[in-house]
Each structure stands twice: as C-alpha cells, then as structure tokens.
Computed example of a mutant assay.
Amino acid sequence: MTDAPLWVFGYGSLMWNPGFEPEEQVLARLDGFHRSFCMWSIHHRGSEEEPGLVLALDEADTTCDGVAMRVKDHERDAVLAYLRERELVSAAYVEQVHDLELRDGRKVPALCYVIERDHIQYCGGMELEQQAQVIAKAVGGRGPNTEYLYNTAQQLDAFEITDTDMNWLVTRVRQLAG
C-alpha cells in the first residue's frame, strides 16, 4: 500500500475511539475472520497480575462486520505511526492488509490488526461465561475492561451490526459487575 489510500478496519475500540478523524467511514465486511475476545490485555484493559480481555480478529470460516476508515492522505504517516504505537504495544497483534467489501459495493485493501495465535496473549476458544468473569473485574491503563465491552457493544448497535456473543456478554457482565 504505497500511494493508494490508506484504509483501516475497525471491529473493536477503533470503531468508537479511532484516535484520528477519518476522511471517509463506511460499514464493511472482512471475510475469513471473526471478532473475538481472544487476547489477554496486560496493558490497556488489564494488568500482568490480572489480565483483561480485548477483541482481536481471529481466523475463522466466517465474516466480521465493522467499519472501514479512510485516512486523510496528508495524515497517513502520522496515523500509521499512532496506530502502530497503540496496537502493536506487544507482539500479540500482527499488522496485515486484507480486502474489505464496503457496504456501498466497493472493495478496498485495508490495514487490519489480527491476533498472532502463537503469542502468549492469545486465548482463543474461551467460554463466554469465563470471558464475562474476566471482563467484569479487570482494569488496565486505559480503564475498566467493562468500559471497553460496553463502548464496543454500543457502537455495534449504532452501526446496526448484530453480534450475539457481544450482546450476551454485555448482559452477563452487567449482572456480575452490578
């Protein structure tokens, strides 16, 4: 992706807190991955002593709906540096480019942050109840894990993206967190 527009795929916190003002924002679908609380958070939403959980793109025979954000050309280098500092704080995410199908029919290559399954922070396959137990208690440098869950679910609702696991987790975590 040299002179082509830089698109970024948001499926979790990038949807509600991208950290930059996109030139364009369009609902999008990524094939071959799903949104999953499959990454231990030891920095932003948990600690090494009591890890939280954050979302990652995990390979799967399905699709993930989210939002494609086109970066303003003159901000490309700054946004890329910001995203790498934010998302690549450990080697748990791998920066990859994948084709997205935009809701308006266009297809664009986009920067995606995908979980590295061999990384120690990978925790794919965890039962929803266990996820809820972790999320209800964990707190990290960017705040409570519950905030991350609630903000992501709220943004999915605003975009009219259905995620049944997310909805279940919100209900259960509210019960646990009080």
Rank of each mutant, 00 (worst) to 15 (best):
V67W: 02
Y11P: 05
E21T: 13
R35L: 05
C123T: 10
A110C: 05
K107V: 15
D58Y: 08
E21Q: 13
A60I: 03
F9H: 09
Q96N: 07
A158L: 15
F20L: 09
D118T: 15
V108P: 01
D99P: 06
A92I: 09
D61L: 11
A56H: 09
A4V: 02
I120W: 07
G12V: 07
P109T: 09
Q154F: 02
F37Q: 04
K107H: 12
N17L: 10
Q96E: 15
T164W: 02
H34S: 05
A78R: 14
E116L: 12
D65I: 04
A60K: 14
G143V: 12
Y11F: 13
A81R: 14
E127S: 06
L100S: 08
P109F: 12
K107N: 04
Q154E: 15
A60R: 15
E50I: 11
H98N: 10
I42A: 01
E75M: 11
V173R: 09
T2H: 11
R35N: 03
P144E: 14
H119K: 03
Y11N: 06
P5T: 10
T171K: 14
E75L: 14
V114T: 08
E48G: 02
T162D: 11
H119F: 05
D165P: 00
D157N: 12
L6E: 03
A177E: 08
A132Y: 04
G124S: 03
V71W: 10
Y122M: 02
M69K: 12
G12K: 07
A92P: 00
R174Q: 13
Y113I: 01
L53V: 08
D77Y: 00
H44T: 09
A158I: 04
A138D: 01
Q25E: 13
R174C: 02
A91V: 07
W7S: 03
A132E: 01
E160V: 15
E75I: 00
R35D: 03
